[in-house]
Amino acid sequence: MLAFPTKSITEVLDRFENLSFTCEYKYDGERAQITKPGVSSYVLDCEVVAYNPQEKKILPFQILSTRKRKDVTTASIEVEVCLFAFDLLYIDGQSLVEQEFATRRNTLHDRFVDVPGEFHFAQFANSHSIEEIQIFLEESVKSGCEGLMVKTLNEESSYEPSRRSRKWLKVKKDYLDGVGDSLDLVVIGGYAGRGKRTGVYGGYLLACYDPENEEYQAICKIGTGFSEADLEGQAVFFKDHILSAAKPYYRVTDGVKPDVWFEPVQVWEVKAADFSVSPIYTAGWGLVVL
C-alpha cells in the first residue's frame, strides 16, 4: 500500500477528522516486504536503510544506493543495513490485511523482537495536535528520516495492496509549504524508462553549475513528481539535444552513468528538504569535509 503526499499538517488533520490516527517516522531507504514460508510464516512491510551500527545512526539513501546488488559475499559487504518494520500482513497462515492497523501493529510488536542495529520497529507517536505533529516531524528529520507517515489506527485502516490509499498520508519536509530550499539545476542526462515509462525517460541526472571552475557538477537523480504529459513532453524536447558522450566540463564519477547525455539546455527549479554528502555525486566536493 502506498501513501498520498500532503502539503501541510492541517491537511492531515482535515483528512483524519474524527478518526484515530498515528504518526510514524518515514525512513529514507528501500521499501521491502519480507516473507518466510513454512509452519511459522509471516509477511512484513518494512523499510531497509543504510545504518552505522557503531554510531547507531541512520545513513542517507545515497549510501544505501552504493551497496552492491550482485555477486555479494558476507565478507565484501561495505554498507550495513537495518530493517525498520511498520506493518504485518500475514502471520502463521493467517492474513491480517482486513484487520485494523492498530491490531496489526500490536501483533507485530508482540510476535517480533527488536535486535539492535539489525531489526527495529518504526518509531511512532499517537499525536493529534499541530504542535505535537510538528515536533515529531522535526525529531524525525533530525534522526535522519524523510518526515512522517500518518495512518488511520482503527476506522478505515485495512491494508490495500498495490493501492495508493488515503488511509496513509506522507508528510515529508520538502512537501510542506514554506519549507525547504529551491535549487536551479541543469538536466544533463536521462535514464530509460521501464514498465509504464517505457518509451520516455524514467529519471534524470541533474547538475549544479560551478562558475569558479566553469563546470556542471552532478548533484542528484530525480524521477518523481512528473505527470505522464510531463514525461512525454520532456522526451520530445530532449530528442534534439542528445550527446554521444558527456561534455568534458561535466564533472561526474564512474558510478554515475545515465543512459543518455544531454546538452545543458534546460534548467529546472527543484525543491529540497535537506542536503547530504554523497559518495557518488560531485556537487560541493572539496567544500565539505567527509
Rank of each mutant, 00 (worst) to 15 (best):
A3I: 07
F4S: 15
P5R: 12
V12T: 06
L13T: 04
R15F: 12
E17W: 11
E17F: 15
N18T: 10
L19A: 14
F21T: 01
T22I: 13
Y25W: 13
G29P: 02
I34A: 06
T35F: 09
V39Y: 11
D45H: 08
C46K: 00
Y51N: 02
Y51P: 01
Q54I: 09
K56Q: 15
K57V: 09
K57A: 08
I58R: 04
I58Q: 04
Q62C: 12
I63G: 00
S65L: 08
S65F: 08
T66P: 01
K68D: 10
K68H: 07
R69D: 14
K70F: 14
T73P: 05
S76N: 11
S76Q: 06
E78L: 12
E78F: 08
E80Y: 05
C82V: 11
L83D: 01
F84W: 05
F86R: 04
F86Y: 13
D87F: 09
L88H: 02
L89R: 07
L89I: 05
L89P: 01
I91G: 00
G93P: 04
Q94S: 13
Q94M: 12
S95G: 09
S95A: 11
S95N: 10
V97G: 06
E98D: 13
E100D: 12
A102C: 14
R104V: 06
T107G: 13
T107M: 15
D110W: 07
D114P: 11
V115S: 10
P116S: 07
P116F: 05
H120L: 14
F124N: 10
F124H: 08
A125F: 04
S127Y: 13
H128R: 14
H128K: 15
F136I: 07
L137N: 03
V141M: 07
S143L: 08
V150C: 04
E155N: 10
S158W: 09
S162D: 11
S162H: 06
R164C: 11
S165C: 08
L169E: 00
L169Y: 00
K170N: 08
V171K: 00
V171A: 03
K172E: 01
D177F: 14
V179N: 14
Y191C: 06
Y191I: 02
A192K: 07
G193W: 00
G195K: 01
R197H: 12
R197Y: 10
T198V: 12
G199H: 01
G199D: 05
G202K: 02
G203F: 04
A207S: 04
E212D: 15
E212A: 15
N213K: 15
E215I: 14
E215K: 10
Y216V: 03
Y216M: 03
Y216D: 02
A218W: 01
G225S: 01
D230W: 02
L231Q: 05
G233C: 06
F237E: 04
D240F: 13
D240W: 12
H241Y: 15
S244R: 14
R251H: 14
R251S: 09
T253L: 09
G255V: 04
G255H: 08
P258I: 05
V265D: 06
V265R: 10
V265H: 09
V265S: 06
V267P: 04
V270A: 02
A273T: 04
F275W: 13
F275E: 11
S276H: 14
S278D: 08
P279E: 11
Y281K: 04
T282G: 00
G284C: 03
L287G: 10
